[in-house]
Design a protein around this nucleic acid. Structure first.
Lengths: 154, 154
DNA sequence: AAAGGTCGGTTGCGTCATGCAACCAGCCAT
DNA sequence: ATGGCTGGTTGCATGACGCAACCGACCTTT
């Protein structure tokens, strides 16, 4: 689906969606933020078809959102890590996630994003609801929320 | 594509993407924020296939992101307006747009989002870059930026 | 040295969402 | 009654996707 280009749309949103606006891409990026790096890890986590995953990882590398890094020679094995450009997608991803928390899981969020310094939960404008600090990807840790707790997932 | 549900993903991001994570949906919402309300307007603006547009509008209404409002009887004509739930997507949309501004149009943004009170441009955390105020959808107006100016688009 | 396991894919096939264009129904103006 | 506007629906062809099998390079085990 990605080949779609919104030619007539001179719009940053449309062009951003050309890169990450498909079924899987943003979930790959989410997993990258959760620390996944290898093909098999992404595949198991998402259950995505392997050919599609190959395609998405390659596109993300082409776009400079992920980079391949050699972690083993013979056989050559690469892992996929977020570039700065990729890390900068964190606010967009978080904001969507917080919207989902509010409107799709009002009774209890699947994941809690907590401020390392004070343990406060992140709010919808990505500030700490406890101390008010503006938060970025390195300021938080992730914990299973009420909705996930029963599943005992990783 | 929307029927895709990420069953094994207990995640607000995945669930949000089930609703708005397809080729067109978020662009429909963008157009709604730009003031479009009618079927034909969306269709012309996006160039999307009419059956797909029908499908997307219906889904958005089902999800409570848009609502149909009668604006004319005989023949019955409805327009599509954002609900509160829909309006709350503004930060997510804006954040993606600002990412695109930065990484895809570094030389000049297609659209400028400006603070009504002081004319300052919105920054990547959705504050006014001039006066620092936290901005929401009703605090701003949209202007063609450098990249759009030459096209003289609406 | 043979067998099996791991990792990171590629290939082939069938299906379903999509793009496209034609058509239609209700109503209005002339 | 003819044509136009709005808001769709229908039918067909394409192509992105899901799925499962296969593959190559290497390692470990027996």
């Amino acid at each position: 689906m990605l080949p779609r280009t919104y030619d007539n749309q001179l719009c940053s949103l449309a062009r951003t969606l050309e890169l990450i606006g498909d079924r899987w891409t943003l979930l790959v990026i989410r997993d990258a933020f959760l620390g996944l790096r290898r093909f098999e890890d992404f595949q198991k986590s998402l259950g995505v078809a392997r050919n599609v995953l190959t395609d998405r990882l390659n596109r993300l590398v082409e776009q400079g959102i992920l980079r391949r890094e050699l972690y083993q020679e013979r056989p050559e094995r690469y892992e996929y890590r977020l570039t700065r450009k990729g890390v900068e997608l964190w606010p967009a991803m978080m904001t969507m996630m917080k919207w989902g928390d509010r409107y799709l899981y009002p009774e209890g969020h699947p994941r809690l994003i907590l401020h390392k310094d004070c343990g406060g939960e992140i709010d919808e404008r990505l500030h700490c609801s406890k101390c008010g600090a503006e938060l970025g990807p390195t300021d938080v840790y992730v914990e299973a929320g009420p909705a996930l707790a029963s599943n005992e997932a990783a």
